[in-house]
Amino acid sequence: MTDDGQQLSRRSVLTAGGAALGGLTLGGASVAAQSDNDNGNGARSYRVTITNLTPGQPFTPPAVALHRPSVEVFAVGNEANEPTQQIAENGNLGPLLELIEETDAIRASAAGESPLVPKDDPGDTGLPYYQELHLEADASARYLTFISMLIATNDGFVGLDTVPLPRETNSSVTYYANGYDAGTEQNTELFEDLVPPAKTLILGGEPEGTDESDPDIAEDGVITPHPGIKGVGNLPPSVYDWDEPAAVLQVEQL
């Protein structure tokens, strides 16, 4: 991780008090937009609304990219790449930012202003359970990818990879997103192995957790559907587990 403000540690993205997880996660502004040289394909405007459907899993500020079909951020059965691993373990958007900046096929992207907590807000955080992101991209961007950390997991994330954008003005499409396990860290479900907001955003109280990935619990696996919370550590399944889907996205072309 660097100190240039781009690659973000667990603590910088996931503030210990859990009240402002998005301060360094690029607000609601565009994360990156590629060249305006779109060969005559005029910009199209989209509104993406992301809603947390779980009863006890907070999400990091959601990240959305609009791109050409050649882009693949994650896939079940494959090893997690660095951007996916860093989001799933640390809530760290830095490697994803680098991917966006280096990949011309990603035409636009944006990140949310704050974490998304469950609708009932069990930790009394006052944080939202849904957010709207606004993006513009040329007509070559035909697909959307979404990813966000499942905060109260070791290496879980919720996401969609390369789903079609609506193609007509004033049209919309709804997608349901499931939770995935990155296969990069054992699911100890211990607060000491999780980011501090895993406790504070749901149970409140003093933060407990770590700022760093622990090589002693590293795992050399592949991305799979998340098995959920099993109660093997500090996370009561009655509080932290969820039924799929974990999120719903409404994608509108304006």
Results as ranks from 00 to 15, higher is better:
Met1Tyr: 13
Thr2Ile: 13
Asp4Tyr: 14
Gly5Val: 10
Gly5Tyr: 15
Gln6Asp: 13
Gln6Ala: 13
Arg10Asp: 05
Arg10Phe: 09
Arg10Lys: 14
Arg11Asp: 06
Arg11Glu: 07
Arg11His: 10
Val13Lys: 05
Ala16Tyr: 14
Gly17Cys: 13
Ala19Gly: 13
Thr25Phe: 09
Gly27Val: 03
Ala29Arg: 15
Ala29Pro: 06
Ser30Lys: 12
Ala32Asp: 12
Ala32Cys: 12
Ala33Tyr: 12
Asp36Leu: 14
Asp38Ser: 15
Asn39His: 13
Asn39Leu: 13
Asn41His: 14
Arg44Asp: 03
Thr51Lys: 03
Asn52Ala: 03
Asn52Ile: 01
Pro55Gly: 01
Gly56Cys: 03
Val64Arg: 08
Glu72Pro: 02
Asn78Gln: 15
Glu79Trp: 06
Glu79Ile: 00
Glu79Cys: 02
Ala80Asn: 02
Asn81His: 07
Glu82Asn: 11
Thr84Leu: 08
Thr84Phe: 02
Ile87Glu: 01
Glu89Gln: 12
Glu89Arg: 10
Glu89Thr: 12
Pro95Ser: 10
Glu101Met: 10
Ile106Arg: 10
Ile106Ser: 05
Ala108Val: 09
Ser109Val: 11
Pro115Ile: 01
Leu116Met: 09
Val117Asp: 04
Pro118Arg: 04
Asp120Ile: 00
Asp121Glu: 08
Pro122Ala: 09
Gln131Cys: 11
Leu133Arg: 08
His134Gly: 06
Ala139Cys: 05
Tyr143Pro: 04
Thr145Trp: 01
Met149Glu: 11
Met149Phe: 02
Thr153Lys: 11
Thr153Ala: 02
Asn154Tyr: 01
Asn154Leu: 00
Asp155Ile: 05
Gly156Glu: 08
Gly159Gln: 01
Asp161Arg: 02
Thr162Pro: 03
Val163Ile: 04
Glu168Ser: 14
Asn170Tyr: 12
Tyr176Ala: 00
Ala177Gly: 02
Gly179Asn: 07
Tyr180Asn: 00
Gly183His: 08
Gly183Ile: 05
Glu185Gly: 03
Glu185Lys: 15
Glu185Met: 15
Gln186Asn: 12
Thr188Pro: 07
Leu190Lys: 14
Phe191Trp: 15
Asp193Tyr: 07
Leu194Arg: 05
Pro197Arg: 02
Leu203Val: 05
Gly204Asp: 09
Gly204His: 13
Gly205Ser: 12
Gly209Ser: 05
Thr210Cys: 08
Asp211Lys: 05
Glu212Trp: 00
Pro215Arg: 10
Asp216Arg: 06
Asp220Met: 09
Val222Cys: 03
Ile223Pro: 00
Thr224Ile: 09
Pro225Ser: 11
His226Pro: 01
Gly231Lys: 04
Ser238Gln: 13
Trp242Ser: 02
Trp242Leu: 05
Asp243Gln: 08
Glu244Gln: 12
Val248Trp: 06
Val248Phe: 00
Leu249Trp: 03
Val251Pro: 07
Leu254Ser: 04
Leu254Cys: 00
